[in-house]
Amino acid sequence: MTQTPPRPPAGPPARRPVPTSADVARLAGVSRATVSYVLNDTSAVRISEPTRRRVREAAEELGYVPHAAARSLRAGRTRIVLLPTAPVPVGPLYGHFLNELQWALRRLGYTVVQYASMGLDGDEAARAWAELRPVAVVTFGAVELTPHGVDVLKRSGARAVITLGPRPVEGAHSVPLDQRGVGGCAGVHLVERGYRRIGVVMPEEAGLELFSGPRLEGVRHAVTGSGADVVALPLACAEEAAGALAARWPGLGLDAVFAYNDEYAMLLMRALLDAGVSVPGDTAVMGADDLLLGRLTRPRLSTVRIDMETGQHLAGLVDRVVRDPDRTPEGGDLMAARAVHREST
C-alpha cells in the first residue's frame, strides 16, 4: 500500500509586492510622470479629467499610496505642518477652530501632525519638532518658544514658524490672539451693571495660565478708575474644589465673579446655589465661550462670546508664508469678543 508523503508545514503566507507608481502607470496606460502629476495634484501640467480619473482608479485598485518620504526627498522639504497640542483641553471653541484648520491645510496639500509636547520645555520641544522636518509649525503657546528654538526649526527646513498669542517671538511670524479682550469685556459688563467686588476664577490646571492670566489682566484694566476691586480665585475643575470655594464665599464679600470659561462658571454657579448663595441676587456669575449648555442652565448664564476667524483663514496664511517666508502675514487679531447679558448677571 502506497502511503502519501506528509505535507511540509505551511510557512508564512507570501507577502504581496508593494505596488509602485510604475504598476499604476501600466494599469492606467500612462507614463510614470503622469501618475506623479495626478497623485501629487500638480497644477502646472495640464492633464485631462478622464486621464486623472483613470490614474486614480488604477491607484485605488492596486492599493498604491505615494511615498511621503521619497516625495519629500525629491522636493527638498516635507509637506508636514506640525501643531503642538496643549497639555489640557482648551474647550469646544478652540477644538472646532483646530478641526477647521486641519481640514483646510489638508485641502491645500499639507500633512497635519499633532505633536504631544507635554514635559518638554521651549528649546527641547523645538529640537523634538525639528526631527520631523516640518515645513511649518503653528503653536498656540502650549510650549513657549524662544528665538533659539525658532532658529533650530528654520535650520531644519521649517519655512514658517507661526505663534498665536499675546507675546511675539523673535524670528517667528506672530499672529495676535489676545485673551485680554475677553477679560476686558467681562469687566466692563460687570462694572456697568454696578458690581464692585469682582472675583476672577483662575484654573489650577497646568497649561491654562496662557489664557487665564491675560483674561485676569483684561478685567483689571477694564475696571481701572471705577473703584472696583478684583480678586483672583484659584479653582480646580472638580466638584469638591467648587464646593470648598462656595463654603467660604460669604467671607469673601464678592458681589460678582467672572469665571475662566462657561464650564468653570457653571461648575461654580451650581456649588454656590447648593450653598444657598443666590445668583444673581447675592453674586452675579459670568463665563466665556457662549456654550449652548450655558443657555440651558437656570439662571441662564451671562458670558463673553468669542468670534474667531475660520481655520481656513489661518491655513491660507500658513500657505502664503510657506511660499514666501519673508512676507509679513496680513490681518489683525484672529478673535473678537463681546459680552452677552443673560439672567446670571
Rank of each mutant, 00 (worst) to 15 (best):
A275W: 05
P66E: 07
A336V: 04
R74N: 14
T328V: 06
P147I: 13
A158L: 10
S36P: 01
L83C: 04
L235G: 00
W249K: 07
T4Q: 14
M269V: 09
A28E: 11
V38G: 03
P19S: 10
I306M: 14
L301Q: 09
G251V: 13
E60H: 14
D255G: 02
V38Q: 07
A130Q: 12
V90E: 07
P84G: 11
P214Q: 01
P134C: 12
R46G: 09
L267A: 10
M266R: 15
T303A: 05
H313R: 07
V230M: 06
L208C: 03
L177W: 02
V257N: 01
S344L: 02
R167L: 07
A104M: 10
G63N: 08
S31R: 04
H96F: 11
L296A: 08
S174D: 03
R71I: 03
G207D: 09
V45N: 07
M202G: 13
R107G: 04
D123N: 10
A28M: 05
V304M: 01
A126H: 15
P147A: 06
Q3G: 10
R320A: 10
L216V: 14
L252A: 00
L27F: 08
A222R: 11
D178T: 07
G165W: 01
V137H: 04
N99K: 08
L177N: 06
R107L: 05
A125E: 14
G63E: 14
S72L: 13
D324K: 12
R56Q: 08
R193Y: 10
S226L: 11
V143N: 05
T2P: 06
L301V: 03
G281Y: 01
L273Y: 09
G253S: 15
A33F: 11
Y264G: 13
Y94I: 02
T283V: 08
S174I: 05
R133M: 02
L27T: 14
P203K: 12
V30I: 09
L291A: 02
K154H: 14
G332K: 00
P299H: 00
D289S: 09
A246V: 02
P5K: 12
L83F: 00
R193W: 08
G29Y: 01
L62A: 12
A142E: 15
H173C: 00
V81R: 00
R196S: 13
